[in-house]
């Protein structure tokens, strides 16, 4: 399986969409236009898109509290997402979930998750559904280095393996669980942990879309072929704080700037496709421009959208009660 020109354009479009979406949320949050708190994915785009480019609606993903990127990569409507983050009635979840609970089950997106380590068991369930109903689907849990230390995650590795589920665990290691370094908090290595559960584990540079895409391809193929679960350890960096407002005092001086200058996944992608003449610079610039104006439109829609009313408070608790 190869990426054709359309695939490449789509991959770049989704990565740009995530970056601009997060930059916009960052600005709007700083301006006081967004309630609550948000965790931004900027810098990690190659991971979500590199994995989700392989997926269809029948495939499921579970995300983290840093979920905007996964949502966009899996095909959730960015305008609905933005309205959701603003707490508006037209938001993807009617304004009831917010940034940490964006979901669209029709797209196989089982939700961002406010509980660190909440997703892996759910993904075992989605994989079990695929296996039992023979849909041919796979299920992917995105989790962070923080979640990799949760019991739910380790239990899920075990369950996925003994039930031979079409599940994939993508550990997005951005080197910090909140302010705590993964270099300190994670004993052993992610791939050796996978090995301990008898499943393939691969480490990959998360700034490199193509590397992620290739590793994900192999893992997803194994899962679709009934060969069971895999783990992918994606090493990457986040550009913003743990949450918006985080002064990031725990990082070293110039740490983020250096990554942005040398390892930015969008820049690397652009460089690679232009150098190898897979796409023309104009084509990429056109994507950037159209994405920018689309995100502006998303923010305008969200700003102008109406809020839910008290009548919405008690709806959607149950189907029937």
């Amino acid at each position: 399986m190869q990426l054709n020109r359309d695939d490449l354009k789509e991959a770049y479009r989704r990565m740009c969409l995530i970056r601009d979406f997060e930059d916009k949320v960052h600005d709007e949050f700083a301006a006081g236009n967004i309630p609550g708190f948000v965790h931004l994915y900027a810098g990690e785009e190659a991971s979500a898109v590199g994995v989700c480019m392989h997926l269809e609606d029948r495939d499921a993903i579970a995300s983290t509290h840093r979920g905007h990127g996964h949502c966009i990569a899996k095909g959730c409507d960015a305008e609905g997402m933005m309205s959701e983050i603003y707490g508006k009635k037209d938001g993807l979840c009617g304004g009831k979930g917010g940034s940490m609970h964006i979901a669209d089950l029709s797209k196989g997106m089982l939700g961002a998750n406010g509980i660190v380590g909440g997703g892996p068991p759910l993904i075992c369930g989605a994989a079990l559904t695929a296996k039992t109903l023979k849909t041919g689907g796979v299920a992917i849990a995105f989790l962070g280095d923080g979640a990799s230390n949760q019991g739910t995650t380790l239990e899920s590795y075990n369950l996925a393996k003994i039930w031979n589920l079409p599940a994939i665990f993508v550990v997005e290691d951005n080197r910090y669980a909140e302010s705590t370094a993964s270099a300190w908090s994670v004993a052993g290595t992610q791939t050796k942990r996978a090995e301990g559960f008898g499943m393939p584990g691969t480490e990959v540079d998360g700034h490199d879309f193509f590397a992620v895409w290739e590793v994900a391809r192999e893992a997803i193929e194994r899962a679709r072929n009934g060969e069971g679960p895999s783990l992918i350890h994606v090493k990457l960096n986040r550009y913003y704080g743990h949450f918006e407002g985080d002064a990031i005092t725990y990082k070293g001086d110039g740490e983020v700037d250096k990554v942005k200058a040398e390892q930015d996944c969008l820049k690397l992608f652009k460089q690679r496709v232009v150098e190898t003449s897979l796409l023309e610079p104009d084509e990429l610039n056109e994507i950037e421009t159209s994405v920018k104006s689309y995100i502006d439109q998303c923010a305008a829609t969200a700003t102008n959208g109406s809020s839910p009313t008290e009548a919405d408070l008690m709806t959607d608790v149950y189907l029937s009660y």
Partner: peptide
Amino acid sequence: VLDTPISESAFIGCAAGAAATGL
């Protein structure tokens, strides 16, 4: 009829995920 390991977090969560996806 699935026997599980003694691993309630995983299999109760698994049941929740399976329920949300069609079982």
